[in-house]
Amino acid sequence: MQTNNQLLTIAVTGLNAIDSPGPGVAVIRALREGLPKPLRIIGLSYETLEPGIYLHDLVDKTYQIPYPAAGTETLLKRLHYIHEKENIQLIIPNFDAELYNFIKLGASLKSMGIVTFLPTIEQFDSRDKINLYSFGEKFDLIVPKDKTIYTVEELFACSESFGYPLVVKGKYYDAIITHSIDQAQKAFYKLSAKWGTPIIVQQFISGTEINIAVLGDGKGNTISSIPMRKLYITDKGKAWAGITLEDDSLIALAKKFVSATNWKGGCELEIMRTTNGEPYIMEINPRFPAWIYLTAGAGQNQPAALARMALGETVDPFTDYAVGKIFIRYAWDHITDVHEFQQISGFGEL
């Protein structure tokens, strides 16, 4: 870790603090609170209206980067340019879709003097929703039954096996709960048109939705795990308010996941706890969730701990956190000027 007079420069993606938010702004808040100053935050954005670009008290400078589909070479070229100007020491990527490229570029970035703290490609792929059922079986974790399908005809067999309601999920995002074959077919067409195939059809599990923010050190140790129950959910299924919980079984589940996979970096376990108390893992997001600032509020600042580990410091696992800490997200009209918008739109920097 840097001493107080050395500038630490960290680049962060996911500045889209919108109704379906990226975690970047929350990660930056936690870094600013948990790391020694001076700290320079470089925002890496994809779109010109990501709010974090304009929040200059949080983000010192933002550079646009190419979309993940452009590939690793294009991304590396852009990062070279940014690094020459900013001397970045650490990058924390926060989008599922970009992680593959950043993981692939790990060695190249390291040779440039930039560290990351990310799962391996194998870890990243194994928890993919397409592989979730076999992942659960392999590591003795409770996951819903599912089937990956490529044609609409396969829905009939799924509905016979799983019954209704039936959850139809897109390859990357979106899930639709269906109650009849007609609805399931409609969901299949909608999601395959948006995200392509395959489509994942999943057994419906009813219960209480709980999320766990987890940080693993890559050696099987859980540095932090904070369970949170959503108190207010938006129409996009995102938590708009949530509260930290005290439940040893959820902490044990997080530790089991990390020790089984040697997970490196942050992740979010999406849990559905049934009325019988069974914790089904519904999805594993391979990065910090948008509500990650709650971990700092509860006494386990996960982004700061990740940064310390990435920069070579040994971080002991946290042992305590505040139960009953609540986050309430809010919307805030930030005022900027057209010249700022022009700057990021025209030059890709602000």
Binding site: T208, R229, L231, I243, L245, E246, D247, V323, G324
Partner: peptide, 9 residues
């Protein structure tokens, strides 16, 4: 009269 269950929230 406020009651809070920290296990369930």
């Amino acid at each position: 009269g406020f009651i809070f269950n920290p296990t369930t929230g």
